[in-house]
Amino acid sequence: MPENSSHAGEFHRDTRYINDRIVSDLPPGSPPVLTPDGHYLWPVESGRYRLIGARACPWAHRAIITRRLLGLDSVISLGLAGPLHDSRSWTFDLDPHHKDPVLGIHFLRDAYLRRFPDYAQGITVPCLIDVTTGKVVTNNFQSITEDFSFQWRKFHHHNAPQLWPKDRCEEMRELMEWIYNTINNGVYRCGFAQSQHAYDTAYEQLWSALDVLEDRLSRQRFLMGSFLSEADIRLYCTLIRFDAVYHNHFKCNRNKISEMPHLWGYLKELFQIPAFGETTDFHQIKQHYYGVHSDINPTGIIPQGPDLSPLLQPHGREFLPGSVFPSEAGEPDRS
């Protein structure tokens, strides 16, 4: 269901999140510290936090990919909600007895309400839960992945990619904000538009942006140049759902990503990286969108197609310089 729509029929996402951060300059085991702006800082600590995601959700998928790419699997546990949910919450129906085996809860909302008994915003994934108390820490999907890169650095795998190129961070922030507005959230602005004008505007902005990226990726291997960055993760989570869901379900149907040679080759290369492809579940993705959005798909019928096996075919981007991991290209550690 749309989170909010204006009188003009435009979809507006509710961006009120729990803006606490987990930081490296507090001693492990310490309690959260209140900041002047009314949020809390929590200490980086191995085993203390559980990431709750859902393979169906693009925003959660970012965090799942980043955690795996950086090698944080052993210090931040992962719980997965199922693809379907109702008005109450995401549920743990993939686990035995429909209960998260670590937190011992059936509904994700329970972790939110343990901390905020009168919590009135969305019960969203991804979020980080303090395992010691069972209380939610943060659900700000933008800062969760950024903090994985900067605050959890001492736990990174020795060959983890540097997802935030230190000399181009501000440039990348601007690019990611533009991608968020026109593409990541742009597909939702098409799908949940409540007027023809709102839909037409979002549709034109979406395809204008995708055309720009098609040209950009004809000249460089990844969005920021020769190496993988967080910008690529954020774009991937929309592109990988596009042909299976957004093209039809959200009426983003000028063409498919598989019909744009440079974006398609780029998407295939990312999909073939284990942290990306092995965390992508097309069945759950389609279950979620076609099963939850009853206002758009009232029959609840889940389409069988499209055939996505071509994602495993050669991507053909070797002619462009670059690599996912610095050592693969003989480059020094860029951290």
Rank of each mutant, 00 (worst) to 15 (best):
P2V: 12
H97D: 15
D167K: 14
G79M: 11
R62P: 08
G82P: 01
N185K: 12
D20C: 15
K99I: 03
P28N: 13
D93N: 02
A275G: 12
Y112R: 05
C57Y: 07
D243R: 01
R334V: 05
S46C: 03
L103H: 07
M1K: 00
I296M: 00
I22P: 07
L26D: 10
H98I: 03
H12Y: 08
E10Y: 05
V102N: 04
V23C: 14
D95R: 15
C190Q: 14
P2F: 07
D100C: 10
R21L: 15
L72W: 00
P298M: 05
P321T: 02
H249T: 02
H97M: 10
R50L: 12
E170R: 11
P117H: 01
D118V: 10
V136N: 07
K166W: 07
H197N: 09
R109S: 11
T201E: 09
L239R: 07
D281L: 08
R62Y: 12
A202K: 02
T201V: 03
P126V: 02
C57V: 12
P261M: 00
A209T: 04
P161F: 12
A120M: 10
K286M: 13
F107S: 14
S327C: 14
D333S: 14
E10G: 05
T124P: 01
Q151C: 10
G300W: 03
G104V: 15
W59Q: 06
C237R: 00
Y203K: 10
I301P: 03
G38M: 07
F92G: 04
N253M: 01
L41S: 01
S89T: 15
D95P: 00
S24F: 11
P28R: 13
P101T: 01
R68V: 00
R88L: 05
S327F: 08
Y112F: 06
Q142V: 15
D281H: 10
T182C: 15
R189Q: 05
R221D: 02
I302Y: 09
R48V: 14
D93C: 01
D243K: 10
I52V: 05
P274V: 13
F222K: 12
K135Q: 13
T201F: 02
F222H: 11
S195T: 13
R219S: 04
H262S: 02
K251A: 10
L175R: 08
D215A: 04
D211S: 08
E146F: 11
V75Y: 09
V292N: 05
A193S: 15
H85G: 04
L94S: 00
I129R: 07
S24C: 15
D73T: 09
S195D: 03
G322Q: 08
W42C: 07
G191P: 12
L228H: 02
F148H: 11
D232Y: 09
N255Q: 12
R234E: 12
A198G: 12
H7E: 04
K256W: 09
M1D: 03
G300S: 02
A202P: 11
W178L: 02
G9D: 14
Y49Q: 13
G277S: 02
D307R: 09
G29I: 09
G53M: 06
S149P: 00
Q121C: 01
F276W: 12
G29K: 11
C252H: 05
N140K: 08
L213D: 01
L320N: 05
H197K: 06
